[in-house]
């Protein structure tokens, strides 16, 4: 029972072929098989949002997804959002607005916000806070994160 299964996935534009046990969580696959430790693991039951990634362009909990399920699909993680030399747009807004302290929750916020900027109306603070409500941060008190998103939302303009 539970022999390994071959999968091929694209992560941040690079394709990977691996053989995985069905029970391997996507979060563990990214961290342990691919060495992409930017995706953090907090609660492993869908509540904290630290493990959020993009799956075919939409945010998903990698701790509630199995690696075997994403065969043939495209994943984006925080590593694809920018580099130390050249931060991505959401990362820059976080730096400018002090949107992080310890940084544990940050990769999940960055990925959730990337989804929000593509798909969600963000015209009021209420809408911004509602869209962020699935990600928990123990440090910042959220205000600086909301400030960062407000600037990004303004820059984006109204959704379509």
């Amino acid at each position: 029972m539970s022999g390994k299964i071959d999968i091929s996935v694209t992560v941040n534009g690079a394709s990977y072929n691996r053989s995985v046990e069905p029970r391997m969580l996507l979060s563990d696959f990214l961290r342990h098989e691919l060495g992409l430790t930017g995706t953090h693991v907090g609660c492993e039951h869908g509540v904290c949002g630290a493990c959020t990634i993009l799956l075919d362009g939409r945010s998903a909990r990698s701790c509630l997804t199995l690696a075997v399920q994403v065969d043939g699909q495209e994943i984006e993680t925080v590593e694809g959002q920018g580099s130390r030399e050249e931060l991505g747009r959401v990362q820059t807004a976080f730096r400018d607005h002090h949107g992080l302290q310890c940084g544990f929750c940050t990769p999940g916020f960055i990925m959730t916000i990337t989804d929000m900027l593509h798909h969600h109306p963000l015209e009021s603070d209420e809408q911004i806070r509602d869209a962020l409500s699935g990600n928990i941060c123990r440090c910042t008190g959220y205000q600086h994160i909301v400030n960062a998103v407000r600037e990004l939302a303004k820059e984006r303009g109204p959704l379509q």
């Binding site: 701790c63 199995l66 399920q69």
Partner: peptide, 26 residues
């Protein structure tokens, strides 16, 4: 059966549910 996995996977991670076969309908 696994659909969205948003209730099943937490229960499997906690080992409250232990299916021997997971049928993915996605």
């Amino acid at each position: 059966v696994i659909a969205g996995g948003q209730s099943l996977m937490p229960m499997m991670n906690f080992r409250m549910v232990r299916p021997s076969v997971l049928v993915d309908i996605n």
